[in-house]
Design a protein around this nucleic acid. Structure first.
Length: 222
DNA sequence: ATCCCGAGGG
DNA sequence: CCCTCTGGAT
């Protein structure tokens, strides 16, 4: 079915290719070693850490995961976990009841349907309890080396400020970004945008004065 | 008061 | 589309 002229879907004006390239180059210079900042070993720990990271800083997640991973090393351990104990161990990350239920359900589903392994496709990952598109992309990129753009709060905000997209919807933004960012750079792009969002392009008070992307940024206020 | 690497449900 | 779930930091 062809798209009719009356479509109300908003299409972001595509940014100039040279400007996109210049932003990517500067991000690479600023954050050459950008990588996942959630402490983890292996896909299972990464999924759990990423579920915990919802509306919570990575720093705080990293404070609860050592004890958590030691207490529940395998998928079956989460599946059999006492929900109250699990809740208590992750309480400080917020949304602890939802997260505990998700993680226990995650363990159960991995055992029952995935041979206790974390699946490696977006479609399967998204069907796991507590795993949405953002979490799935993190796992694909950081555990399975599959390119993916993780549109979290930072990537969404910075992409809009940079004029890379106007979409507030994370999935729409992700698709628009995939069209302007070369695929091999999707994962590092996400990490670099997140780091820049945490250090410079802050949500409330962006530090445009000390931002080396300001000359390339249509939202910069100096 | 607002934000942090969201997801699920109505 | 909206709302709710939660604690910690600024």
């Amino acid at each position: 079915m062809p798209r009719t002229s009356g479509s109300k879907s908003k299409k972001t004006v595509r940014p100039a290719k040279e400007r996109v390239r210049a932003v990517l180059t500067e991000l690479a210079r600023l954050y050459p070693d950008a990588a996942c900042t959630l402490d983890h070993k292996g896909p299972l720990q990464l999924v759990v850490a990423t579920i915990l990271s919802a509306q919570c800083t990575d720093e705080r997640v990293n404070k609860v995961t050592p004890a958590l991973f030691a207490r529940f090393p395998r998928a079956i351990d989460y599946a059999e976990a006492d929900i109250a104990e699990l809740e208590e161990m992750i309480r400080s990350t917020g949304f602890f009841r939802n997260k505990a239920k998700s993680i226990k359900g995650l363990g159960a589903k991995l055992v029952e349907e995935h041979n206790s392994r974390v699946p490696q496709t977006l479609e399967e990952l998204v069907k796991l309890p507590g795993v949405g598109r953002k979490t799935a992309n993190v796992v694909l990129g950081d555990a399975f080396d599959t390119p993916g753009i993780t549109v979290d709060t930072h990537v969404g905000r910075l992409s809009r400020r940079l004029g890379f997209t106007s979409q507030k919807d994370a999935v729409k933004a992700e698709f628009e970004l995939m069209e302007i960012i070369p695929q091999p750079e999707w994962t590092t792009f996400s990490h670099r945008m997140i780091l820049h969002g945490r250090k410079v392009c802050l949500s409330r008070k962006p530090k445009c004065g000390e931002c080396t992307l300001a000359a390339l940024c249509p939202s910069a206020e100096l």
